[in-house]
Every structure is written in C-alpha cells, then in structure tokens.
Write a protein that binds this DNA or RNA. Structure first.
Lengths: 198, 198
DNA sequence: TTATAAATCTTTACATTGATAAGATTAAAT
DNA sequence: ATTTAATCTTATCAATGTAAAGATTTATAA
C-alpha cells in the first residue's frame, strides 16, 4: 500500500468498482470516465491504459454486475434445490435483484449495452448466464408435464418474459404502487394462470 | 412553402419528426441536438427557441411515440371489440409494436426517460395510456371470473409484465432466435398457464 | 547488474456536444 | 407605423471522450 506512487497499483479494478458504485447510485447516464478517474486519483487519460474505449470499460462493468446477478440466482437455485417452489423463488430473486438496485436494470439491458449473448432455443445450459439458470430450472419442471417440446419452449420464454417484465416495471421511476413489492411479487408470479381467451 | 426564409415556419414539428425518424433508425444514444438542427436546415441554437433543454425535446418526442403506441393498442381494441381473443391480441400488439421498432423500447422506457405517469392500483381507466388500455381490458375480462379484487389486480400486473417483458426480449440486439417471432408471440402468450409450484 | 523494452501514468490538445448570451430578422400586436 | 415578441444566427463556454507525446516505473534480457 504505497501512499502516493506514480503507479496506482490496481487501477483497473479500482476503476471498475468505483464505476459500479457510481452507477448503482446515479445510473449510467451520469457516468463520466473523467470523473471516475478523478475519484481514483488518476488523470483523465489514465484509464486508457486499461480500456481502449469507454464502451470497453462499460462492458467490463457489465460483466461484473452480471456476475452478481448470476450469483444471486445460483444461490437461490441451491437454497431451494428440490423444493417445489424453486422456480417461483428463482423468479422472485430475478425481480428482487433489480428492485433493490434499479439502476442495474438499464445498465445491463439497455439496448446499446447488451454484451451478453442470450439464446432462446436450446439454451446452452452449461453456462451460468441468468437466462440459462432460469431456463434449465423451468425446463426440468415443465418437462415433468408431458407436452410438445415447442410448448415447453414457449412456457420457458413466457416465464422469463414475466419476471423480466416485472423487473422492468418495479424499476420504473414513475410507477405508483402501494408498499411491499417484495411480498407482492410472489403473488403476482403465482397469479400467472390468467384466463386469456382463445 | 417558402424556399429559404429566415424563419423556418414549423421548426418545432420538424425537429420532433426528424428526431423521431433518427431515433427509429439509430437510437437515442446517437442523437445529437445539433445534428437534428442541421438536418432541419437551422443553426445549432435554433432549437432552444422551442425547447428549453435537450431533455425537454426528448420528452416531446416521447409523447409523440407514446401516442403512436396508444393508437396501435386502441386500433386493436376496436378491431377485436367483443372478441374472445381481445386481450390476447392487445398483448400481441403491445409486443409487435416494439418488435417492429426496437429502438422505441429503450427510448420510451429507459429509466431516465419515463415521463409518463403509470399507475398500478386502480388505474385511471379514463386515460388513454397504453397501460390503462391494457388494464381496462384485462380487468373487464378477469372480473367475469369471480375472484378477490387483489387477485385480479395481480393478474393484470402479470399480464402487463408478460407482454412488457416479451417486448424487452424481442428488442434485445444479441438475442438468438429462429424466425417468425410474430406468429410465435401469440403462442407464447397463450402458453402462460405455467404449472409453477406451491 | 545493467541496458532495453513494456506498462502505466501525466500533460497537452482536439473535436463534439449541450447550453448561454448578444444581436439580427421577421411576425404579431397595438 | 411603431413597438413588442418570437424566431433564428453567430460567437462563446464548459464538459466530455479520446489521441499524441513524453515521463516514470516495472519487467525482461544481456
């Protein structure tokens, strides 16, 4: 731990962590590379030794946050292993993760940001992407009911869409709702048996 | 139609329409107020006679696009009035709207942008917001089944989350899927009767 | 060890952008 | 017709991403 050396020592990590903390509180829109550099005590051009461009920096942070997200899902996956409410709890975890850090939603999923490959059909279940985890669980549950593969695939996507949409909704800044989303989310997911027509 | 007068004549409208066309093709991230001004044949400061700030310009465009969205839903609402598949078709329209113009999704819903008030509980059904339209329809359908009000509210939110999430998914740039989303969407929405547990 | 190379950081500089101020031109109002 | 308000232009500024050139430290190789 040097006091004030020319070299920072661990700038790359410092930039990422400072940047993520900033995004967590103020959102990506407000993030300026120069300010993050300043917060880390280095000059404005220093980050360019570690990231070719600001976008590359963003991508690095995304992977960091995406790992947090995956970890949350995996934790639930283990905790509720073999429980009949596993899928429900996974969905709840999905939503709560963003509910607790609203800025992460846009940061991970806004159109220009998505650097994570997602696959719908025949998910690569050996990967630990959030989608893969959800897919794997949903698939194993749905397959217990004998149904055409296509229907199962559709159900998986529907389940994903439901929780993803809920995440989008609960992170909207101008949404009005009475309190306790956290308990409500579970009820909403359960209510999914909607009597749509034809 | 003057050829080249000092005054533009209808600059405000021109800016909005040019801006929206730009967003439709390149997304909001790429939009610069100066470039839009240039495209309209005026100087860089001209827009400030019509919008105090860039954000105000953005909000104006959002309302424009949101109106397009509402109109699409209302059209479906009329077309399938009294049809048993009304809700399904509304949901499909919701998703297709963004599927056809992916950049609109982020533009309307990205966190910093949402200037439209949304209400979950006891929706203001006399307004023509997309949510209100969906809510009104869903409510009238769900209420035919005798259920506690809270359950109905949950189902409404679930329905909204499902289509909103689908919209988010189909507009993701890195998502892989085989063709014909348009026909698929309907099947996915229908498959919503998911056998979740507990 | 020492000379050379590579990595990391600073300073300077530039182009783009949102925004403001001062003034020119036109349209509206009295 | 004179005044007033709206609209537009031409500077100008500060913040930002980024490139270039050089300084300082670390790593490598002789």
């Amino acid at each position: 731990m040097k006091e004030k050396s020319y070299h920072h020592g661990d700038l790359r990590r410092a930039l990422i962590e400072t940047g993520i903390e900033f995004i967590k509180q103020e959102g990506e829109e407000a993030l300026s590379l120069r300010r993050i550099a300043e917060m880390c005590g280095v000059s404005n051009a220093a980050p360019y030794a570690h990231f070719k461009t600001k976008d590359e920096f963003i991508v690095a942070m995304q992977h960091y946050v995406m790992d947090l997200f995956s970890a949350a899902l995996e934790k639930t996956s283990i905790e509720y292993k073999d429980s009949p409410s596993l899928l429900l709890m996974l969905g709840k975890t999905y939503v709560i993760f963003f509910y607790q850090n609203p800025f992460y939603y846009d940061f991970l999923f806004s159109r220009k940001n998505i650097s994570i490959k997602l696959s719908l059909e025949n998910a690569v279940t050996d990967e630990n992407t959030p989608l893969a985890i959800l897919q794997k669980t949903a698939a194993s549950i749905f397959r217990k009911v004998k149904l055409p593969e296509k229907v199962i695939q559709n159900k998986i996507i529907a389940m994903w869409a439901l929780v993803h949409g809920l995440a989008a909704i609960v992170t909207m800044p101008n949404i009005e709702y009475d309190d306790n989303w956290e308990t409500r989310i579970e009820e909403i997911i359960k209510s999914i048996t909607i009597p749509y027509q034809t």
